[in-house]
Write a protein that binds this DNA or RNA. Structure first.
Lengths: 358, 358
DNA sequence: CAACCGATTGTGATCGCTCACAAGCCTGTT
DNA sequence: AACAGGCTTGTGAGCGATCACAATCGGTTG
């Protein structure tokens, strides 16, 4: 049987409560007593029983991070950043993969594992605005991404439109005139695809370039394979192109693959820009220019927000919507040297909390 | 206050124990009773309190997976595979990142989070054979990788020597005569680097090629950046080379970057082969040939082993050492088309369990 | 016909910890 | 000298579930 507080207390000649006080860093303990208890703990190799503590305190010390897939570099890196931020605050992260399926995403909000943790940082990909009712929950929730706006929860999102616009303008400023976009989702009005495509249109407009539907290429799921296919389609169609804005880096890397297969020189013939600035971008061949959406800041903010909610009592604080700064990083694929060539500022806004009232 | 079993019992007009029986699938319950209880559960929205159950049963239903970094694609994909396997068995995975630091890796074996879960699947990168005492633990442990052999624990490892030898022979079979290896760790006798380098030497020998130290390039941590640097060093030194065997895919992708920067054609002038077969390999430019070490099988086996240990009682079972089959996948970077060009069989062996006796 | 057996349900203790509360102790103040 | 008030430690009651054990209910069995 494992060592308990009772054993430690006995050995140190104090009450169980004093051991608890020592373990939990209660300040009013005579130094001599504390030392005696600590010695007993060390001698017996005592470790607090987390289950018992959780039962009593109604806290688990865990926060769930739900993402589509860890094998997508963006989410792997986001998970890394979230874990680091939580760690620094003494919390532990439980990662859930949803495979971007409606069923799994719904389960994350109400399934059997929901009660394993004290809060949820959730990046939905399958659920959308029609499912907003599912987001009315009675636990601390922070929503990430651009699928669901207006949910009664804190929300950390990207500067999508402004960043995409800036990226497009940047390509134009390099003298490109036929700028294609890869990864559009026709007919959709929400989500990253819609927002970034909108930014692209705004960018074209501001640069005084015409909007040509032939330059807008669909790509359903944003994977390398779909990026490669989309790019190949564009090239095979014989459309004139001198730049490509891929709506994320996976698409961009796939597109790069297809450009290479078609013997198209990057950036000589076609300049290429991605979005997300995953680590891979820096080491692609050629190194990929991209939009850094402020991933670390997103992670840190999400952790801060969820921990604040968990720690909060009394009146519900207003829901916050936070947008980190984003940056454009120009690398070889646009004929640049890896420096930041533009910053789009983010910001924070508050939304009344009483949306939660049923 | 949350709904408890007591509330459900009252509502259904049964004892608390009967509710427990229903929740846990105990078979001897009259169907009518079961229905009444289930109805009460549904009406009240009851959910079992995991903390209370954990306290009583001394089980958490969680297993830790400790890896160096999720942002390394190999480990992200391993984590994905482990979570899927655990999920299928009704278990939940808690991921820990060690950053490959000795301190964090030691913590994984004995730190504050150890007691959060029922078992550990651990892929050490900083700890080595000298630390084997740390692996004598009193909880279910499965070791992954090639840093620590002979620990009193189950062990899933790769077919390193055989696979590296086969990869080298494969390059030779394509007519390459000056095969460099990137990622060696001089002086080390354990770990992936040593084993794969040994396989490389065996491959050279069997192909009848001379071993030339000038073709063995060091690269400390196996990242893209170090791979790129190592490759650049080799090229700048003017050593004659017509093939490169990078000891993992990250190194290979970095090397590819450097080859591109030096305007060396792949596979025309230099053929390139990696190790790990991460998703990135397939979409690199050109697509990267690699050794698939059987990642999914590793994950599934690790989960099976740790769950067996957790479920086991009584006599300790002998420790098992499992090696999945590995495969060589030839893609563009060796002038091939993406098919499997070789299989190296693995196997299982048993080690007496009484090594644990103190 | 009484003992007996398996199916079904209930009882009471307990897992290890923290919480609210209380009590003792010491200091300085009036 | 009495007392307020802050430090320091202890007491007893649960948190919500499961476990070992026991009790009940029918129907069998010898």
């Amino acid at each position: 049987m494992a060592v308990t507080m009772h054993d430690v207390a006995q050995r140190a000649g104090v009450s169980i409560k004093t051991v608890s006080n020592v373990v939990n860093g209660y300040p009013y303990i005579r130094p001599a007593t504390r030392e005696r208890v600590e010695a007993a703990i060390a001698e017996l190799g005592y470790r607090v029983n987390v289950s018992a503590r959780n039962l009593r305190t109604r806290r688990t010390g865990l926060v769930t991070l739900a993402v589509p897939e860890l094998s997508l570099p963006y989410f792997a890196q986001l998970a890394d950043a979230v874990m680091s931020a939580a760690d620094a605050a003494g919390w532990t992260v439980l990662i859930e993969q949803t495979s971007a399926s409606r069923e799994r995403e719904t389960e994350v909000l109400s399934g059997r594992r929901r009660h394993l943790t004290d809060g949820l940082i959730f990046s939905p990909l399958a659920l959308g605005p029609d499912d907003i009712d599912l987001f009315t929950v009675d636990f601390p929730l922070v929503v990430l991404g651009e699928r669901v706006f207006g949910a009664p929860a804190d929300h950390v999102t990207m500067n999508n439109v402004a960043a995409a616009k800036a990226a497009t303008l940047h390509l134009a400023s390099l003298g490109r005139r036929r700028i294609a976009v890869v990864g559009a989702h026709a007919g959709q009005e929400v989500g990253s695809a819609a927002l970034r495509t909108e930014g692209y249109r705004q960018g074209l407009a501001e640069a005084g370039l015409p909007y040509d539907p032939a330059l807008v290429v669909e790509a359903g799921p944003w994977h390398r394979s779909t990026g490669a296919e989309a790019m190949a389609r564009l090239l095979d169609a014989g459309v004139e192109v001198d730049a490509v804005f891929a709506l994320n880096d996976a698409l961009a890397l796939g597109a790069l693959h297809a450009l290479h297969a078609h013997r198209v020189d990057v950036p000589g013939e076609v300049a290429l820009m991605g979005f997300d600035d995953v680590d891979d971008a820096r080491f692609a061949v050629p190194a990929l220019s991209s939009v850094d959406p402020g991933r670390d800041q997103i992670a840190q903010t999400a952790v801060d927000l969820v921990l604040q909610r968990i720690g909060a009592s009394g009146d519900p604080a207003p829901f916050r919507r936070v947008v980190p700064d984003s940056r454009i990083v120009g690398r070889e694929s646009t004929g640049e040297d890896g420096s930041v060539v533009g910053v789009q500022p983010g910001g924070t806004e508050l939304v009344a909390a009483d949306l939660t009232v049923a």
